[in-house]
Structures are given as structure tokens and as C-alpha cells.
Write a protein that binds this DNA or RNA. Structure first.
Lengths: 214, 214
DNA sequence: ACAAATTTCGGTCTGGAGACGGAGTTTGAA
DNA sequence: TTCAAACTCCGTCTCCAGACCGAAATTTGT
């Protein structure tokens, strides 16, 4: 049986070394190389044409989402396994949309990772249980995040609420009347199911509804 | 010259493997063993008496803070190097208080880690630049976090504010009058330098002032 | 033991927050 | 074209939030 050609993408040297150290002991795996950024990964993937890529998400020079999308655009048969520490909605779903094949957490054991590589080569996906939970709940529409019902304008107002602005300040920022702001705020409160602007602000902050995010 | 006796504590197997893979190639280092939790680390440290410990902070069975404190209580000459992905205030300062000797981030290269081990053995501390920044600002009293001026009761009230409670609800939770709550809230607002309870709630959430975390 | 800080509570007053109802305009989908 | 949703704004009303003032009881530190 053909060896599985594997590539590693991670900006942490010690993580790359750790994975490499046990991939090299696997007879069924051919270790192709490693990249320390998303952009580097795209270049290397063009040359190496790997079967499976272990991909981190947060990296300085080109993140894992974009890299996943680009690599699949020219090398669609590649199976990309996300291997990261995070499993919040803002990581999991964009990664899946980008075309990720499996999603593992860095808490996984060496055995789990190698097993996932072999399964990926056969077309089977492996999803960490914590990530699987999120995916299940996502497909229960009645339980999805309440702020997905918000209109774009309401979303903008909620963002302002999350910054602690008063109605007056919001009206100035968005160039609308205070009465209009009040209407939006009232609608937001009822849609989010919270009692007042303070709870709405907390909601915004805890769900990462912010101007800029790192 | 005597070899430096090193121990690893991390709950991620692949991180342990990664570190081990290059520690074993270092002639000046004697690799003693590894632990995957804080409590396990304490037990192993009693047996191995390491010179240096590479310690992760967030682990399931006994965190790195407590483990650091306990190990130093019976083996004070040990130098403990924190090696983690996080560098927020809630990690850095408790770790230093616990007696950590150095603080590295997992973005560090293999060379930086080995270098830090040798320096630690000689008594020199290594602090990651991002962490050093935080420490510098901490020692500028006029710039320290405003919520450190809060009294314990005010801190409790702020915690409630961070949960979005009304004055009425806070008074019921803390078994005090609404007027008293109002007094505390007013004092909190002026001490934090914010305009209203909403901004105070945002402050609490962004600075990790919560009942329980994670 | 004494001074200082903390915690507690009272009264009063102003302003903003939010609910409720109504209404005109625009935009996009059926 | 028609209709629903989204965005805009008006008036009114109630109530809580917060400022400001004072003050007593308790705790803390020296």
C-alpha cells in the first residue's frame, strides 16, 4: 500500500518537532515537509502535492483558513486536517467552510493524530468530540445564537452597545436620531432575550461582537 | 560541568514529544521525565529533584500555578520555567507570585528554550518580550489596573454588574439594601473612571472579573 | 486603644432608558 | 405590481440609575 504523504503547517517550532518526531516513526506515512505560515504552506503544497496536511489556524503570515481554501483550489484531492487549540464557533465553522476535512485539538494524543491521518487518506473525517458538539448544536436552528436574527443595522447598534455608548452617542456615530436608536435598542433587547442595554453589552462582548478582532 | 536535570510538565502529548525530541539531543541536559498534570508533576519532582522544570499552566488535574508553589515548598532550589501559550495578566502575575523563575511562550524556538534552561540553571531569568511588557507596565503604579483600588465589597458588586444584574438583584444576592448597592456602584464608577453600569459591566467582562472562569 | 477605612443606609433630584403605539420611506422578493 | 421587512422618526409615560449630601456601625491597621 502506498505511503500517505503528509505535510505540517504550524508556526510553533516545538509543535512541528513534536508531530514530526512520531510521524517519522510511522511506516505508513511519508513526511514531506513543514511550513510555519499559511502562505508558506500554499507554496509548499504546490510542490509537494501532499495527501494530507496538518494545519494550524492562527499564524502570522497567512492564516490557516485562507491557506486551506487556496490549497484546495488547485489541489482538491488533498485532505486538510485542522490541528489547533481552539474550538470556538469563530474557528470551527470558518475552517469547515474553507474546506477542512477533519478537526482535531492539540490535546489529542499522538495515536489519535496518526489515526486521523490514515482515516483522512481513506476519506474518513475525524472530528474532536468538543468540536462535534458545536456542530450538532449548529444544526438545531431553534437553538442557534439569537443575534443571528438581528438585522444589519441592529447589529451595528449592538456593536455600539458593546462599547458602552449611550443612545446619544450611538445616534451621532450612526448619523440617525435618538428615537431611532431607541427603537433599535428595544428590538435588540427583545431579540436577544435580555432585560436591558447592560446585558446586551455583556452579550456582545462575550460573543465577540466587536469592531475589530485580532 | 554537571548536566542540567530537566523535567517537562504539559498535558499535550505532542508538546511533550516536541520538547523531548530536542532536549535529548542536548549534551548539557539530562532529561529526567515528564508529567501531564500539576499533581503528577509534584509527585515526580519529589522523586527526581530536577534542576529545571518546564511547566505548562492550564492542565486538568492540578494547574501549573499550584504545582509550582507546592514544588518550591519542598524543593526551593528548583527553577521553574513557565512555558505556555498565554500571556494575559491572569496568567503572568499569578505564575510569578507562585514562584516561577522564567516565563516563555510556546511561540519560542527550540534554541530559545534550551538557552533558557541553561540560563535558569545559572540563576538567570528569561522573560518573553510580550510578557516583559506587561511586567513593566505593572510596575508603573499610576498605570495599574484601576480595579485594584476597589474594596472587596466593591469588587463583589462589580462582579454582579458584570453579570448584568440590576441594583435590586444585587441587593438580594448580597443581602444589603438597594441604597447601599447604589453607593457601591457610584464608587465603582468613579474608581474605574467609567460613565455608567454598562461600561462597568464591559470592564468586568474584558478583565476577567467573573464568578468562575472557563 | 485610637484613627482610618470600609460598609451600611437615609433623602432628594435629574435625566436617560425603555415600553408602547403610530407612521412614512425604501428595498427586495414573490 | 404587490407585499413584507427594514429603517427611520414622533410623542408619551414610567421607572431605574446615578449624583450629591449626610451619617452611623463596623472593621482594620497601627
Amino acid at each position: 500500500m502506498q505511503k500517505v504523504k503528509v505535510m505540517i503547517v504550524d508556526d510553533h517550532e516545538m509543535v512541528r518537532l513534536g508531530i514530526k518526531s512520531y510521524l517519522l516513526t510511522e511506516d505508513g506515512i511519508e513526511f514531506l515537509g513543514e511550513a510555519k505560515s499559511g502562505n508558506e504552506a500554499v507554496q509548499l503544497a504546490k510542490i509537494y502535492k501532499p495527501d494530507v496536511i496538518l494545519m494550524d489556524l492562527l499564524m502570522d503570515d497567512g492564516n490557516g483558513f485562507d491557506a486551506t481554501e487556496k490549497i484546495l483550489s488547485f489541489h482538491g484531492s488533498c485532505k486538510i486536517i485542522i490541528l489547533t487549540s481552539y474550538y470556538d464557533d469563530e474557528k470551527v465553522f470558518p475552517a469547515i467552510e474553507a474546506g477542512a476535512h477533519s478537526y482535531l485539538l492539540k490535546t489529542a494524543s499522538a495515536e489519535e493524530v496518526t489515526s486521523a491521518i490514515y482515516k483522512a487518506a481513506k476519506g474518513e473525517a475525524v472530528i474532536a468530540s468538543k468540536v462535534a458538539d458545536k456542530m450538532m448544536t449548529r444544526f438545531r436552528p431553534q437553538e442557534r445564537k439569537p443575534h443571528e436574527d438581528l438585522t444589519t443595522r441592529e447589529f451595528e447598534v449592538l456593536t455600539c452597545l458593546g462599547e458602552g455608548m449611550t443612545n446619544q452617542e450611538i445616534s451621532e456615530v450612526l448619523y440617525i436620531g435618538i428615537k431611532t436608536v431607541k427603537t433599535h435598542v428595544s428590538n435588540i433587547l427583545s431579540k436577544l432575550g435580555v432585560a436591558d442595554r447592560t446585558q446586551a453589552a455583556i452579550y456582545a462582548n462575550r460573543n465577540g461582537i466587536l469592531y475589530k478582532k485580532e
